[in-house]
Computed example of a mutant assay.
Amino acid sequence: MTGPAVVLVGPMGVGKTTTGMALAERLGTTFRDTDADIVAGAGKPISEIFIDEGEPHFRELERQAVRAAVSEHAGVLALGGGAILDASTRELLSGLPVVFLEMGVAEAVKRVGLDAPRPLLAVNPRQRWRELMAERRPLYMEVSRAVVSTEGRTPEDVAEAVLDALELRKA
């Protein structure tokens, strides 16, 4: 099979990066995060890209970063929370071992915080979180082979649950 060994999707703050690194270690492979790729390529944080160039420009950078990572990376891949908004990205993920990491709004508020530099949560974060999840949950479900809750779990526990969900345990 070509492409990533595992692709993690889910909302901001759910733990895709931390879980992805733990999962890559367990699988003996590498980890890649498309948000980190975007930041490295742009030379500035995502929040500044949103402010300076706008969300449509960021989404184009994100689309390009996902396409490159899916074609080049064979390890564990974490996508930004909104990457699944793009239809071509969802199509690209078809047939790949994608896992939706989920959490509820109370956990999201604890993890993301109310004053973090998250451009999409700048005004009324709890309400905006609910709106984003109402929009994105069906798309996360569409692309995913499995759903794993991160609530009350360490990244190591979540990584173990991902291995179980995808039946990736080594015999």
Rank of each mutant, 00 (worst) to 15 (best):
L61Q: 04
L92W: 04
R130G: 06
T2I: 05
T18P: 05
K170N: 09
M141W: 12
D115R: 11
H57W: 09
L101Q: 09
G15I: 09
A108P: 01
D52E: 15
E91Y: 00
S144I: 05
V14H: 10
L163C: 03
V123R: 13
A74E: 15
E160P: 01
H73S: 10
V98C: 11
G20E: 08
A83I: 00
K110F: 08
E102V: 11
P56L: 03
E167P: 00
R128Q: 15
D164S: 10
A22F: 05
P56E: 03
A74W: 02
S144N: 08
P138G: 06
R90K: 06
V105F: 02
M141Y: 05
I38F: 01
R130V: 02
A74Y: 10
I49T: 00
Q64A: 09
A106M: 03
G80S: 07
F100V: 04
K16I: 04
E25P: 04
A146K: 15
V70Q: 09
R111D: 13
A171G: 10
G41Y: 06
A22T: 12
R130C: 03
L163F: 07
F100C: 10
P138M: 03
E60L: 05
H73I: 15
R32E: 05
L27P: 08
F31G: 02
E55T: 08
L27F: 10
W129A: 01
A116D: 04
P97E: 13
D52N: 12
T17H: 02
A42P: 06
G152M: 13
L168G: 14
K16H: 11
G82V: 00
Y140V: 01
I38R: 03
E151I: 14
P138H: 05
S149R: 14
P119L: 08
A106F: 00
P138S: 11
E151W: 07
V105D: 09
G152L: 09
E167R: 15
M133S: 00
G113W: 03
L166C: 13
V7T: 14
F100P: 02
A106H: 05
R59S: 00
S149L: 14
L120N: 01
S88D: 15
S149A: 14
A161M: 11
E131F: 02
L114K: 08
R169G: 10
E160I: 10
A161F: 12
I46K: 02
G13L: 03
V105E: 11
E167W: 04
T30H: 11
A134C: 04
K16Y: 05
V147I: 15
V148Y: 15
P97V: 07
L101N: 06
G82A: 03
R130E: 14
R169D: 01
R67F: 10
L23C: 04
V123H: 14
E72V: 04
